[in-house]
């Protein structure tokens, strides 16, 4: 499987109006001013506290970020003479600023709102405290800007390990997933999986249209949520293991011991990867189940292959015979 070819979507910007949408991480924003600028683009997930900019120091002003105004900034503005404040705000607004956000339901000086209205910079307000607001907004923007993609795979939560099952069409991804669900595991998505990188991990999401529907050859489309109940599906899961089903081929070399843990890079995150050869009569679901359990065991520090190898080595060393006499000198190394 070539993971480099995965098409990577990354939003170049989001409009400020996205922050006002209902699902914007419960930040509960109200628009105070600058309605004309509601479609201004936000290009980065980072935030800035413009305290120094308000005091007049505009070198290195991180103007392209979301500007958060907390208690400090608002009360500082109250102290500044309105004419002087207007002057400084105009200087600030000469830079491209996406949006001002106020925390704690604070109300800024009227002159500040007037200026923002005139320049069309949206001013939002939230009831959250500043630190809550900052962490929520960074999380929300990071999620919005996270590289994402849609891939042809099946995602199942097996004993709490998110398994992304990949492989050619018709190799039995859906059937394996079906059997896993039958055995009590949870389907995240079948066939089309939305993946997204968050930090150093990959998250899978159910496609908002296909949901938990599955196409089984010979049966047609089935909805697992109704057939097996809500307990058998979930919408979201972090991926712990990528399992690729490959056709059994005697020439194919793969790790038979499981002593090495190969990784693949997908959207820039490194994810453990297993190759499972498929042969008629091989129960893939059980193998995936065991692979997930073994992966959990390894994460807890128990590596069965390594332990067995150590035991065999120790046994061999104990039974060692005296070193053999080299027959030819040149064999030495």
């Amino acid at each position: 499987m070539n993971f480099d070819k995965i098409l990577e979507n990354r939003k170049p910007f989001i409009p400020v109006s996205r922050l006002l949408e209902r699902n914007a991480n419960d930040m509960d924003f109200k628009l105070l001013a600058g309605f004309q600028g509601i479609d201004r683009p936000v290009y980065t997930w980072d935030i800035n506290r413009p305290g120094l900019a308000l005091s007049g120091y505009l070198d290195y002003f991180a103007n392209d970020r979301v500007q958060i105004l907390g208690n400090t900034e608002i009360h500082y503005m109250e102290r500044v003479d309105p004419a002087e404040l207007a002057n400084r705000v105009v200087n600030m607004l000469a830079f491209e600023i996406p949006v001002f956000i106020l925390s704690r339901n604070l109300l800024p000086q009227p002159i500040f709102l007037d200026m923002c209205n005139r320049y069309g910079i949206p001013v939002l307000r939230s009831s959250l405290t500043t630190d809550e607001l900052i962490s929520k907004i960074i999380l929300f923007l990071a999620e919005e800007f996270a590289p994402s993609s849609t891939i042809h795979a099946t995602a199942v939560d097996v004993y709490g390990v998110g398994c992304l099952i990949m492989g050619k069409a018709g190799i039995g991804k859906s059937e394996s997933a079906l059997e896993l669900v039958e055995r009590g595991h949870r389907l995240v998505a079948d066939d089309m999986v939305q993946i997204q990188r968050r930090g150093n991990s990959i998250h899978v999401k159910t496609h908002h249209v296909t949901k938990h529907n599955m196409e089984i050859r010979g049966v047609g489309v089935i909805d697992l949520r109704y057939i097996f109940g809500v307990g058998s599906v979930r919408d979201f899961k972090r991926i712990g293991l990528i399992i690729e089903l490959v056709e059994a081929d005697p020439e194919l070399q793969f790790d038979r011991l499981g002593m090495s843990m190969p990784f693949v890079e997908i959207l820039g995150a490194r994810i453990p990867y297993l190759n499972i050869p498929v042969r008629p009569g091989r129960n893939i679901a059980i193998i995936i189940e065991v692979a997930a359990l073994n992966w959990r065991l390894k994460e807890m520090g128990v590596d069965s292959a390594k332990i067995l190898d150590e035991a065999v080595r120790a046994n061999n060393l104990r039974r060692n015979r005296p070193p053999l006499k080299p027959e030819k000198k040149k064999d030495l190394w």
């Binding site: 790790d255 002593m259 190898d309 080595r313 039974r319 060692n320």
Partner: peptide, 17 residues
């Protein structure tokens, strides 16, 4: 067998494969 550690996991896998 001429290697120091005898037949352990890696040689076994090498031979079998």
């Amino acid at each position: 067998v001429i290697n120091t550690l005898g037949i352990h996991a890696r040689p076994a896998a090498l031979l079998a494969q």
